[in-house]
Nucleic acid binder design. Sequence first.
DNA 1: ATTTTCGACGAAAACGTTTTCGATTTTACC
DNA 2: GGTAAAATCGAAAACGTTTTCGTCGAAAAT
Lengths: 342, 342
Amino acid sequence: MNDTRLIDIAAALGISVTTVSKALKGYTDISENTRARVLEMVATMNYKPNANAVNLRTNETKTLGVVIPTMVHHFFSSVLNGIIDEAENRGYLVIILQSNEKYELEKKQIALLQQKRVDGILISLSNETDDFSHINDAIKKNTPVVLFDKIAKLVDCSKVVINDRKAAYDAVTYLINKGYKKIAHFRGSYTPQNSIDRFLGYKKALEDHNIPYDPTLVYLCDHNSDFEDGYDNAQKLVAEHKDVDAIFAITDLVAIGIIKYLNDMHIKIPEQIAVFGFSNWFMSTVISPKLTTIDQPGYDIGQRAASILINEIAQIKEHLPVIHQTIELPTLIIERESTIRN
Amino acid sequence: MNDTRLIDIAAALGISVTTVSKALKGYTDISENTRARVLEMVATMNYKPNANAVNLRTNETKTLGVVIPTMVHHFFSSVLNGIIDEAENRGYLVIILQSNEKYELEKKQIALLQQKRVDGILISLSNETDDFSHINDAIKKNTPVVLFDKIAKLVDCSKVVINDRKAAYDAVTYLINKGYKKIAHFRGSYTPQNSIDRFLGYKKALEDHNIPYDPTLVYLCDHNSDFEDGYDNAQKLVAEHKDVDAIFAITDLVAIGIIKYLNDMHIKIPEQIAVFGFSNWFMSTVISPKLTTIDQPGYDIGQRAASILINEIAQIKEHLPVIHQTIELPTLIIERESTIRN
DNA sequence: ATTTTCGACGAAAACGTTTTCGATTTTACC
DNA sequence: GGTAAAATCGAAAACGTTTTCGTCGAAAAT
């Protein structure tokens, strides 16, 4: 019932805890003979070092903290998957906390992770967050932080993102090149950086192709359900702008809401209106028509972010200077039925 | 840069660490005056207790370990959500590990969690697992374990499940009552318990309603992609059985594959063939036609499992006897367009 | 004035490791 | 055989808490 400790196997072998510890940690001043005996006893007694004691002594926990807005989103769960895999490979565990898009909760979670003395923190900021002192506090206390996806440019740390602006620009340019003339944009809330960037990409693409920007073609999707936002705004759009021939949506889910409405109204996609999504989650291959979208590499983002973080942890441990980097992962246009006119 | 410790705030106040610690933990032999001073200094120095030291001393980590086969499945991510929420509410953190459906990895993850001295373990077994000694080892060492979803009846611990057999029985009975005569089943692989149970429920429902069981109406979906399994097998089915009028699929994703194929072939749903899914994940409300399915309460499963686990942790701490319970969460038929004939 | 009680605090041990620094024994060498 | 060097080992401190047990002075009771 009780966990066996170093002292137990020391007693069983008639030697000191020091020797046992050294034998396990590869010290050279232990004879091969006793080392073998220790190893054997460790196996038979099923000894597992008490991580708390080790952590206290060594001042590292081999644990990463992750804070995400929400877990039940395909994008974040694939990011998590990437993080967990990379952490696993490099001998780290992962503690996952959710902010539910609330600033106060995010702050609390960061404090919790500091209390747990995690070796590093990965975080995608909540939509509410516009004060970064909690992040800076962690960094100041020597806990490296890597921001991903929803980042803040002002924070001095490494970041892993996609170029939302370029991706959106490419998407809209693609639509223009396909011959679509009047392109609406279903945008996200006003604060998150990627919502802003995607909007800017949309606007820039129009300008660069001499299409006047029309603010009434931009619809705000900032309610709880992306799907319903898409559905409801599609209804508005159809009522207000008879001649729109394409929609660039901030999210696949919004796009799917749009498709659902258009299908319900028997408005042909893409013949009457084309739809372009963002993220390439599984559903977009399943809906009818299949959705053209931007592939957002969630797994890679998670993996790279974790990798950078673990590297920085190592640097700090060696007292080497750490150079923060901002990685921009490439996105890809996935062309499917919802934009292909014959 | 350095974290402040008890001794730091003791020094700042000219008192002992003992007094500081007691003041923080609500001991009654501290004057209200000094308690107030301590609290203030704690705030200004931004003191956060070192969890490792606390854990070592108190022998509890306020941390739960979770092992799931994979994270990028809607069902598991909602279970996780339930676990994390409940843990959060009760003051626990959560470490999440994946087994990738491999027994060896699952074993390793359990060992890791024991090393971390988590207070309890939640696990949904991998498909490969048929030896439970690693689970029993944890239980024997006084770490309570709660199994959920993919459980092993032989292990002596609490469990949270749905009644797959009954749910499937109800689904097929529903179809029969709706007047469907020839009902096919798209089943999952042969080993997992819930795949077996759903198949048995299907078979039993037929028998109880005097419909002869026809093995050629059962199609095996055991490739990587549930969606493609559904699509491909739908193709086979349509070729082999012209007169089938309903399909009960083991998974929404399989069902959606089926729908996709039938839509592609312009076979009317449900007029020619009805489709019944399992799990009620978001997608089933988005597909056309909307999918009738069984609601599998992932969030509740996670929440209940975490709740039971935390209760057992408390019992053990108080040296009270723990009575293991097996909770069967109710499932519900969600009727939508894919089975409603006019 | 003496004892008893009580209020407020601190010393010290303990949790299970890791690591420094000696200490002791063995081996090598002349 | 004596010394130096190498090979093995252990004692003890330290990590930051929590908690038991005492101590000490002041207030209350005698």
